[in-house]
Simulated scan of single mutants.
Amino acid sequence: MSAPVTSSQRPALIVIDVQRGFDDAQFWGPRDNPDCERNISTLLAHWRDRQWPVVFIQHDSEHPDSPLAAGSPGHEFKDVVSGSPDLLVHKSVNSSFYGTPDLDHWLRSEGIEQVVICGITTNHCCETTARMAGNLGYETYFAIDATHTFDRATPEGETVSAAMLAKITATNLNGEFATVLRTSALLDALAGTGAQQSRVFSPNWK
């Protein structure tokens, strides 16, 4: 279980794949959480006000027909991801820890022990990065309402809604790989209000 997130730890905010290509509803299908980008913006503003480390992750798809293909308009960051990060990592797989430059090396060289994860998509690159961060020993926090995902089909062809996939990700991560919580709870904890424990993820979060 992660220790309480604190401002004294100088946590890093890892913003994953917030790219224009994910706005292509025809390609990806229905999404959940329309507040995702607003919550990412809130987190970024909080981090920059305090001059804490910010990491942007950018997916360079190797598939030329992907909306995230390098060199395509969809490869660019959305407007919410503005300004210069402390580190920009390019990747072509799910985990942000398998990219260039090496994220783990940079975090350790900066003495960073706590990471906060947000971005797109909840159950793919965000969840994979959170699992690896937990395994690598970082105190990992997952801002569930600062992520979103898309409906997916099971191997049997049934549709699983994006909202359900987000709940499954939260259930998979919380208490084992990361602490899952909402943006407001995260900011309360960083402010030292003691509100974190009452507002951490529960299976009925909305």
Score class of each variant (00 low, 15 high):
residue 47 W to Q: 12
residue 6 T to I: 04
residue 155 P to T: 09
residue 180 V to P: 05
residue 200 V to C: 02
residue 153 A to K: 13
residue 191 A to G: 13
residue 69 A to I: 02
residue 186 L to F: 09
residue 172 N to K: 12
residue 199 R to C: 08
residue 206 K to Q: 14
residue 130 A to M: 10
residue 183 T to G: 14
residue 128 T to S: 15
residue 81 V to H: 05
residue 107 L to S: 13
residue 168 I to Q: 09
residue 97 F to Q: 04
residue 57 I to F: 03
residue 83 G to Y: 04
residue 111 G to M: 06
residue 82 S to M: 00
residue 30 P to V: 04
residue 24 D to W: 03
residue 159 T to M: 15
residue 135 N to E: 13
residue 50 R to E: 10
residue 120 I to S: 05
residue 146 A to N: 06
residue 171 T to D: 15
residue 127 E to S: 13
residue 183 T to V: 13
residue 62 E to N: 11
residue 157 G to Q: 09
residue 146 A to R: 00
residue 178 A to K: 03
residue 68 L to N: 07
residue 171 T to R: 05
residue 88 L to T: 06
residue 157 G to R: 10
residue 173 L to G: 06
residue 55 V to F: 04
residue 175 G to Y: 08
residue 113 E to K: 01
residue 71 G to Q: 07
residue 142 F to A: 15
residue 137 G to Q: 09
residue 66 S to V: 09
residue 126 C to G: 10
residue 150 F to L: 07
residue 7 S to N: 04
residue 154 T to V: 07
residue 22 F to I: 04
residue 125 C to Q: 08
residue 38 R to G: 10
residue 86 D to P: 01
residue 84 S to G: 11
residue 7 S to K: 06
residue 19 Q to I: 06
residue 39 N to V: 01
residue 119 G to N: 09
residue 47 W to V: 03
residue 59 H to A: 00
residue 206 K to F: 08
residue 153 A to S: 14
residue 153 A to P: 00
residue 20 R to F: 05
residue 193 T to R: 09
residue 185 A to S: 14
residue 205 W to D: 15
residue 11 P to Y: 05
residue 197 Q to K: 07
residue 164 M to R: 10
residue 131 R to L: 12
residue 70 A to F: 02
residue 2 S to N: 10
residue 183 T to C: 15
residue 116 V to M: 11
residue 21 G to F: 01
residue 108 R to Q: 15
residue 170 A to D: 15
residue 185 A to T: 05
residue 11 P to R: 00
residue 74 G to Y: 02
residue 112 I to C: 12
residue 37 E to N: 07
residue 158 E to I: 00
residue 69 A to Y: 01
residue 80 V to F: 07
residue 10 R to K: 07
residue 65 D to E: 15
residue 152 R to K: 15
residue 84 S to H: 09
residue 74 G to H: 01
residue 164 M to I: 04
residue 163 A to C: 06
residue 40 I to L: 11
residue 99 G to N: 10
residue 101 P to T: 08
residue 92 S to V: 00
residue 72 S to Y: 03
residue 191 A to L: 09
residue 86 D to G: 13
residue 39 N to Y: 07
residue 27 F to E: 10
residue 46 H to T: 04
residue 92 S to Q: 11
residue 149 T to M: 03
residue 87 L to C: 13
residue 181 L to H: 04
residue 17 D to Q: 11
residue 47 W to G: 11
residue 134 G to T: 07
residue 4 P to D: 12
residue 124 H to Y: 11
residue 196 Q to R: 04
residue 133 A to H: 01
residue 51 Q to V: 05
residue 173 L to I: 01
residue 144 I to Y: 10
residue 30 P to R: 12
residue 190 L to K: 02
residue 176 E to V: 13
residue 33 N to V: 09
residue 192 G to R: 02
residue 189 A to D: 09
residue 183 T to D: 13
residue 148 H to P: 02
residue 95 S to E: 04
residue 61 S to G: 08
residue 120 I to K: 08
residue 104 D to C: 10
residue 97 F to G: 08
residue 170 A to E: 14
residue 185 A to Q: 07
residue 187 L to Y: 04
residue 113 E to D: 15
residue 158 E to H: 11
residue 121 T to G: 00
residue 27 F to K: 03
residue 57 I to A: 07
residue 167 K to Q: 14
residue 26 Q to C: 01
residue 79 D to A: 14
residue 14 I to N: 06
residue 35 D to A: 15
residue 77 F to M: 14
residue 109 S to Y: 11
residue 172 N to C: 13
residue 150 F to P: 00
residue 189 A to E: 07
residue 140 T to C: 15
residue 183 T to W: 11
residue 33 N to P: 05
residue 115 V to F: 07
residue 155 P to W: 05
residue 93 V to H: 11
residue 171 T to A: 14
residue 12 A to G: 06
